[in-house]
Design a protein around this nucleic acid. Structure first.
Length: 856
DNA sequence: GAGCACTGC
């Protein structure tokens, strides 16, 4: 093999076996691990890359031979995939007792073998000897010479991972493909190994490798893991970059980042030419950022293809959504890597046996189910219960604690532990503590335990099948927070949490029939959020016609129009042709892009500049980006305390000024504390005790004032970031002192779309841009009782009623001109866009291969 | 006088 000689690393670590789920060696079956996508007799359908290869496949003889080989491989693979038949059982809940029934249905989830492979035939690189030699490929430039970058990966011995079994094939594909889709489930090792393989394949010679993650913790911990494996320090060859933390340097070759950071980088350097390869990890989660990123990167790739710095893309996903990604990326090749989790027995409620069962009683059912599991499962196996929100969780926790009184003497103590994001960090830590002897830990959690945190020792999962999600109603511009059914993929993900350490069980509090009615995948974020901020970013990158934007899942026309109307109304964009099919950024819109803020919040800063209160505005807007600064522990007692404390800061002007007062008071406190600490240090106090004292003082201050320390810290860091950007934008700093009217005016003009007028007859507020919508001020607001004539709010939330959160008193005359402009614009916009949408629909068949209308 | 999942720049 001539290719091998170019990749000295290939010779190393050659294994003749694979590792199965128990860590045993098994015979290789590459067919199940790796697939080469053949379509219409073409290899990977991307004629640009395959060139000569394609012609050879036209040869009938070769094709015949190939097909036979593929059939054989596929047969082998099917054997390998055969589903295990386990005992069948289900359970029922009657009169508060849960009973196990024999002989019903059970599913085994084992990520060892993928359940379904892409429909296309399979082959292995070993038999594709007529593949184009590396040197003729577009991407060969960086591989002409042997890689001069040598990672010191031998220093660290790590346990074997399933991905090791396909290392050589994967290296081959990484080196030869422009775009590669890697499907590997939990525990496959793809997130740590693929970037290292890229380095060894020489991809990092011409630039560094960016690996994107949806969460900060993941980016940081993966980077530190890989640094250890490669025997280097973090921030050197391996680094990470998340908001507020940049641990990279000019030498960094593998850069773990949050997807949002990469997006921001693209705004500054649209071709991302620092990176020779971008790896999008966890693409199946379909976060807003990763979806947008994929759209941008596809364009980058096109632009860089003919240059001496082509861009490689690797899309990594845990679920078999491969076909969707594949068609989005021009029939890119798909590689499958086995996962490594333990088998999980899944039980569904059987409604035929249990007539009175109702899946809406999931809170009650959860308690019963915990009791049943506790009395039947061996000791020492912890339980994880998935519910939808803090209220439910606290209720179940207290019921379970009460249950202890009625348990048999021989049973262990039930130890309920709530877990949700709004919970204070010290309380969250309890979920990770070791379960004491003679107790069984029951973690009652929201979907935070699905992906964001992994709790050790969980052997049983109880899944309510429900999740609380926020969806954006574009037409009315309202966020709706509602309980929905989970998707099938989500249910599988939840079940998988029981099999991290050992074989596990999952009890689903819904029937198998219900399960089949669930959506296959989670609704991508881009389909359920306000698109205005995203569109603004894309416009900055050169998008002109958002209706032609090609995302994996195109948002609804209503949602696109709503975002365009919002941006136009805010003065961030303007139509450039009469039919409003093309838009351009205004100067103001261009400035908005630089701030990591939603466009209306950016506009507050813009207005504040005019009013002369930019310092105050930055503090308020920064605080608006975090969750509640005031927060208790979650129980009713601390809620009352929060209300009491909040009243101390209350102002007649409203919640935003209250927020400002709080920030000013805390700033004062920090100034004093810093001065004291400095003087203590001068008098020779030990650093360690100083630090301890410093942190204790902060903690006491936060506890006394019911302030969430974490959120306060975040707000102050955002404040710094905004200040920095304002300096770069050459903003003249100004302050209004105690003249809060200026600040209120800036808030009103920035968020004028959210201004409301009080309707005395209805005793409700009417949204000025759409008086048909009526709402209430949320009781947590300091204006909920005074009911002023005009208000502006920062958030509208639909729960049991429509509530305005964070409200400020305004003057109706301030916003009236803007409102009437907006109404005219809305009328035009609706008429014109409807007409144009019809035109586009008519043109659709012709514009089949329409390219993304983005130019950089 | 209500009760708000989770991320991210």
């Amino acid at each position: 093999m001539e290719i091998k000689s170019k990749f000295p690393a290939w010779k190393k670590k050659k294994r003749k076996f694979q590792i199965d789920k128990d860590g045993k060696k098994i015979k290789p079956n590459p067919g199940a691990q790796i697939s080469k996508i053949l379509q219409n007799g073409k290899v990977n359908g991307n004629s640009r890359q395959t060139g000569g290869q394609e012609q050879k496949f036209q040869n009938l003889e070769a094709l015949k031979k190939k097909t036979m080989l593929l059939k054989k491989k596929k047969k082998q693979m099917n054997n390998f995939q055969k589903e295990e038949e386990l005992l069948s059982s289900t359970f029922r809940i009657t009169n508060g007792i849960l009973k196990k029934e024999k002989k019903i249905e059970v599913t085994t989830i084992s990520t060892q073998t993928p359940k379904k492979l892409p429909k296309t035939p399979i082959s292995t690189p070993s038999n594709s000897k007529n593949a184009t030699p590396m040197s003729t490929r577009k991407h060969s430039s960086s591989q002409q010479s042997p890689p001069h970058f040598e990672a010191n990966y031998e220093k660290f011995s790590r346990p074997q991972l399933p991905i090791d079994a396909v290392e050589q094939q994967l290296m081959y594909e990484l080196a030869s493909q422009e775009t590669l889709i890697v499907i590997g489930e939990t525990g496959s090792g793809k997130s740590t190994q693929v970037p290292q393989l890229c380095v060894r394949a020489g991809i990092a010679n011409s630039g560094s490798i960016a690996v994107t993650q949806p969460r900060r913790v993941a980016a940081i911990s993966l980077a530190s893991r890989v640094a250890t494996e490669m025997g280097t320090n973090i921030g050197g060859i391996v680094g990470y970059h998340v908001r507020f933390e940049n641990a990279t340097c000019h030498k960094t070759k593998i850069e773990y980042m949050t997807d949002g950071i990469v997006l921001r980088k693209a705004l500054v350097s649209p071709l991302l030419d620092k990176y020779s390869c971008v790896i999008i990890d966890e693409a199946h989660e379909r976060s807003l950022h990763s979806d947008v990123l994929m759209c941008i990167l596809r364009q980058c790739q096109d632009q860089r293809r003919e240059t001496n710095n082509p861009l490689r893309l690797i899309i990594m996903s845990a679920t078999l959504q491969a076909e969707k990604f594949q068609s989005y990326f021009n029939n890119a090749k798909v590689v499958l890597v086995a996962g490594r989790t333990f088998p999980i027995e899944v039980f569904h409620v059987n409604p035929k046996i249990n007539k009175s069962f109702s899946s809406t009683d999931y809170v009650y059912n959860a308690v019963i189910c915990v009791k049943y599991v506790h009395l039947t499962e061996p000791k020492g196996r912890d339980i994880l219960v998935f519910l939808t929100g803090s209220e439910e969780i606290e209720a179940v926790a207290s019921q379970l604690a009460e249950l202890n009184g009625s348990l048999p003497a021989s049973a262990d103590v039930l130890m309920p532990v709530p877990l949700y994001a709004a919970l204070r960090p010290e309380k969250q830590k309890e979920a990770f503590r070791k379960t004491p002897q003679g107790a069984r830990k029951v973690i009652i959690s929201t979907n935070i335990a699905e992906t964001s945190v992994t709790i050790p020792g969980i052997r049983v999962v109880i899944d309510s099948g429900k999740v609380k999600t926020k969806r954006f109603e574009a037409f009315n511009r309202i966020d709706v927070l509602k309980v929905h059914n989970v998707s099938k993929a989500q249910a599988k993900q939840r079940a998988g949490r029981a099999g991290r350490d050992a074989p596990g069980k999952c009890y689903r509090l819904y029937s198998r029939e219900d399960f089949h009615k669930f959506e296959a995948e989670n609704m991508p974020e881009i389909l359920r959020c306000n698109l205005s901020a995203t569109f603004l970013e894309l416009m900055k990158l050169g998008m002109k016609n958002p209706h032609r934007l090609k995302l994996i899942d195109p948002p609804e026309t209503d949602n696109i129009n709503a975002a365009l109307l919002e941006l136009t109304s805010l003065g961030a964009i303007r139509p450039v042709n009469s039919d409003r099919s093309k838009f351009a950024l205004t100067e103001m819109g261009d400035a908005f892009c630089m701030y990591p803020l939603p466009p209306d919040h950016a506009r507050i800063l813009f207005q504040a500049q005019k009013e002369g209160c930019i310092m105050e505005a930055i503090k308020i807007v920064a605080a608006m980006q975090t969750d509640a600064l005031f927060s208790g522990a979650g129980d009713s007692k601390s809620d009352a305390d929060v209300d009491r404390i909040r009243r101390r800061f209350e102002t007649r002007e409203g919640d935003h000024i209250t927020l400002l007062k709080l920030v000013l008071v805390t700033n004062q406190f920090f100034d004093q504390l810093n001065k004291k600490t400095e003087s203590d240090a001068r008098y020779g106090k030990a650093n360690k005790s100083l630090e301890r004292e410093y942190n204790q003082t902060i903690r006491k201050f936060c506890n006394d004032n019911m302030i969430n320390e974490q959120h306060l810290k975040t707000a102050s860091m955002i404040e710094e970031q905004l200040k920095q950007i304002a300096i770069e934008q050459k903003v003249t700093f100004s302050t209004c002192g105690a003249d809060f009217m200026k600040m209120r005016k800036a808030l009103a003009l920035g968020m004028f779309l959210n201004s409301c007028e009080y309707d005395r007859q209805e005793d409700r507020y009417r949204l000025m841009i759409n008086p048909a919508i009526t709402l209430k001020i949320h009781p947590s607001s300091c204006l909920s009782r005074s009911k002023p004539a005009y208000i502006v709010f920062s958030e509208l939330m639909k729960t049991n009623d429509l509530f305005a959160l964070q409200v400020t008193l305004i003057d109706g005359d301030w916003v009236r001109p803007l409102i009437s402009d907006h109404k005219k614009m809305r009328a035009n916009h609706l008429a014109e866009t409807t007409e144009r949408v019809q035109q586009i629909t008519r043109l659709e068949p012709k514009a089949k291969k329409a390219k993304l209308n983005v130019t950089f």
